[in-house]
Design a protein around this nucleic acid. Sequence first.
DNA 1: TTTATAAAGGATATATATATCCGTTTTGGT
DNA 2: ACCAAAACGGATATATATATCCTTTATAAA
Lengths: 144, 144
Amino acid sequence: MISKSCKYAIRAALYIASKIDEKVKLSVKEIAFEIDAPEAFTAKILQNLTRHKIIFSTKGPYGGFYVEQSNLKIPLINIVNAIDGLSIFEDCGIGLQECSDIHPCPFHNDYKVIRNGILSIYTNNTIGKFSKELMSGETFLKSI
Amino acid sequence: MISKSCKYAIRAALYIASKIDEKVKLSVKEIAFEIDAPEAFTAKILQNLTRHKIIFSTKGPYGGFYVEQSNLKIPLINIVNAIDGLSIFEDCGIGLQECSDIHPCPFHNDYKVIRNGILSIYTNNTIGKFSKELMSGETFLKSI
DNA sequence: TTTATAAAGGATATATATATCCGTTTTGGT
DNA sequence: ACCAAAACGGATATATATATCCTTTATAAA
Ligand code: FES
Ligand code: FES
């Protein structure tokens, strides 16, 4: 469904948000390490998130990536939109050019339910909600 | 989730099954046209399905691809397994190396529900069920 | 037995996604 | 003013998925 890049993006944004209280800017190097992603590629993704104002950045010494309180209200669907776009939520489950109620594929009814379920996960959860779970140690961003 | 190849495979298998009553073997050319897929690539996928005994084929004049009644009982998950494998149903929603109940990512609980829902669609529907819907004109394998 | 037909299979090509590299720009500290 | 740190941005490389091409093999009919 969502691309590998988008998964990195979500992990990165959540990691940065989970450090909001430390009031320190994070380097690409640290972020990439903490989310278990390649460094140079993570850099590209962070640039993208910055352009979309999902996170902030400053250059130079003591610079890096960070979020403000306002960013915590952003739903995760905004990240998906920034990286993959939203058309994935309109695609047919077995690749017909158009997903349509009046010209449906055999999966259509079942698939629509699932697809909307996925959309809901991204829409109903914010960066703040998930980053809070990370802070408390309930959830994690990389495997052991 | 599933690959483009897998979507072609499902469309192809369902198309062939939907023609079971005509008692005629179908060529790659016809199948590819009817499911709106590239011909040479469809050929590869059909070979794969044949090797996995999801469909049958015979070479030579009047040869082609076909299914028997017994194939109609095959659930769609078998096609997914043949093309993509089943590991996709164990993957983490945001790409952690392991999806784990005791070391979960922030999406884990929600994602597991969705992922099992998708698995159910493939497990609970057979080639026969969906091909019957195609025969009756309720559903379609390519866009208008 | 010859011929035509159609799938099988191996080799290769193209497209897309993922990943890296390196010079440029910005910025804070000295 | 100068230097060092760190993100930015463009170019390039690699990996994977998708797609094509061509030769071989099997089969049915004449
Ligand atoms: S037409 Fe296939 S999912 Fe809607
Ligand atoms: S750990 Fe991410 S979905 Fe299970």
